[in-house]
Amino acid sequence: MTVSAKAGAEVRLEGIGKRYGPVAAVKPLDLVIAGGTLVTLLGPSGCGKTTLLRMIAGLEVPTEGRISIGGRDVTRLSAGERDVSLVFQSYALFPHMTVAENVAYGLVSSGMGKRAAAERALAALASVGLDGLGQRLPSELSGGQQQRVAVARALVLEPAVLLFDEPLSNLDARLRRKMRDEIRELQQRLGVTVVYVTHDQSEALAVSDRIVVMRNAEIAQAGTPAELYEQPADIFVAGFMGEANILPARITALAGDDATVEIGPMTVTLPHRGLATGEAALAIRPEAVRIGPPGPGSLPARVRRAAYMGAVMEYTLDSAIGAVFAVSPDVGHPLPVDAEAGLTLADRGVVLVRS
Rank of each mutant, 00 (worst) to 15 (best):
N216D: 09
E64R: 01
S139E: 09
Q187V: 03
A306G: 07
P293F: 00
R54W: 14
Y308V: 04
Q188L: 13
T198I: 09
Q135V: 07
I56M: 13
Q146T: 11
L275W: 08
G349D: 15
C47L: 14
A123K: 11
P248V: 06
S319G: 03
S4V: 15
Q89V: 13
M309L: 15
T51M: 15
V23M: 09
A280S: 05
L247V: 01
A150Y: 00
L282D: 05
V84E: 04
L352T: 14
V207H: 12
Q187D: 03
K178P: 00
V324R: 04
Q145L: 08
Q147E: 14
R120K: 15
A255D: 11
L168A: 14
P95N: 00
A301T: 05
T198M: 03
R304L: 07
T98I: 05
E119S: 00
N245S: 09
V289G: 09
S110P: 04
A152E: 00
L275S: 07
A57K: 06
S298R: 05
I56G: 12
K27A: 13
H199I: 01
I33H: 14
D258T: 14
P336N: 06
D30Y: 06
V353G: 04
I321F: 11
V192M: 12
I69V: 13
G8Y: 08
L343P: 07
G71I: 11
V312C: 08
E14S: 01
E262M: 04
F88C: 02
A281I: 15
Y308L: 13
K18Q: 05
P265A: 08
L171G: 10
G8W: 08
E262N: 03
P336V: 07
G21S: 02
G342N: 09
G332H: 07
A160C: 01
R115E: 02
G71T: 11
I263R: 00
V237A: 13
N102V: 01
G80A: 07
Y308N: 01
V103S: 02
A118P: 11
R180Q: 14
A34K: 13
L299C: 08
A259V: 12
V61R: 07
D209V: 13
L228T: 09
F88L: 06
P336Y: 00
L93Y: 13
D318E: 15
L299S: 04
M241I: 07
K49V: 03
G274D: 15
V353F: 06
V212L: 12
P286Y: 15
V212S: 05
G80F: 04
S78R: 02
P159C: 12
S208Q: 10
I69R: 07
L247I: 05
L228H: 03
T344H: 13
E158V: 10
L343D: 06
G295L: 11
L228E: 02
L141W: 03
E60N: 14
A7F: 06
E279Y: 02
T198S: 01
A57P: 02
G58E: 04
P28E: 04
E182D: 09
S45F: 15
S68F: 08
A253E: 09
H96N: 06
